[in-house]
Amino acid sequence: MADVACFLAKEKGRNRVQVSRASDLEITQRHQDMDWADRIKDCLREDRIVLHSQRFTAMQAHHQDGFECCEVLTRLLDTEGNLVFPGAFIPAAERFGLIEELDRHIIRKAFAKLHSLSASQRAKTRYFINVSGITLGTPGFSAYIELMLTEYVDVRPCNVCFEVTETAAISDLAHTASNVRQLVGQGFSFALDDFGSGMSSFSYLEQLPVQYIKIDGEFVKGILTRPAGAAIVEAVVKVARAMDILTVAESVEFPELLPHLREIGIDYGQGFALHRPEPL
């Protein structure tokens, strides 16, 4: 408990006192995260990382003959054979310094899967792979991607789009933008995930050379529930189009959304109403 209290004191800014009580929810969460850290290490060592995918659907006719895009989703397989979703383990991976190793493991598996496709399949496939801001900001990330291209020679940069959340990207904007530019220069694509969740979303688009923005699901669902919902999404689409950026509507969970998304000009949709995740 003393060890946990030290961690919490550091996270809250250091130079402070943190009292540890057995009833403290923060202490309980920390213990759970520490347990998850050990479980993540076991899953990495035993390769119990499972990849699923969720396809995008073209909302506009002129995109229907382009790449078949899908997001690569990560699950852990526990010792009893149950799938564990990322909300349970990603925070612990980030907190205990395991996220870079986890990201690299996922990237390697995704590249291997792309490599295993037939040439005709691969030529029209693009995987969207999530990368944490921590991983993207490390100096060796570009070198690791170069290594993957060397090991999986049939995979081309155009087959891969890296997704980074808006909040993670802006935590170290200058460094992130530099790494993104380097990889985009090699032919990779980037998507800014959860767009709109930050405070100054539009201003970051001029600094981050992304090819896609994925509009936060709360705004997308708001098209049906809030008077300003459609206007907000339409504003994002107009700015994106002016900057030659493609738009993806996240959390398309209701078929009723589809005609609205097409009318607004959304390029792609992603959600349960279009495709439910399945094993990659």
Rank of each mutant, 00 (worst) to 15 (best):
A22H: 11
S251V: 07
D244V: 13
D244L: 15
V236P: 00
N159Q: 11
I223S: 06
E80W: 04
L149N: 09
Q29R: 11
R14A: 06
V19Q: 09
T125D: 08
R226Q: 09
D78T: 07
C43F: 03
C69R: 14
N15P: 04
G229R: 07
N82K: 13
R48K: 15
V4C: 10
K12I: 03
F190Q: 02
G81V: 07
V252T: 03
K221M: 07
A37C: 13
V19I: 10
K41L: 09
H63G: 08
R16G: 06
F162Q: 00
Q270G: 07
P255I: 05
V248R: 01
V237R: 00
S142P: 12
Q32V: 01
P91K: 09
H275F: 11
D3P: 01
C69I: 08
D267M: 11
A58I: 01
G198I: 00
M59T: 03
G217C: 02
V19R: 13
I90H: 09
D3G: 13
A143I: 05
L51V: 02
S116H: 12
L258E: 11
Q121I: 01
R95F: 05
G196F: 12
I27F: 08
N179V: 03
C43A: 15
E206L: 14
D3N: 14
E163N: 01
T79Y: 06
S132H: 01
E151W: 00
N82M: 10
P157R: 12
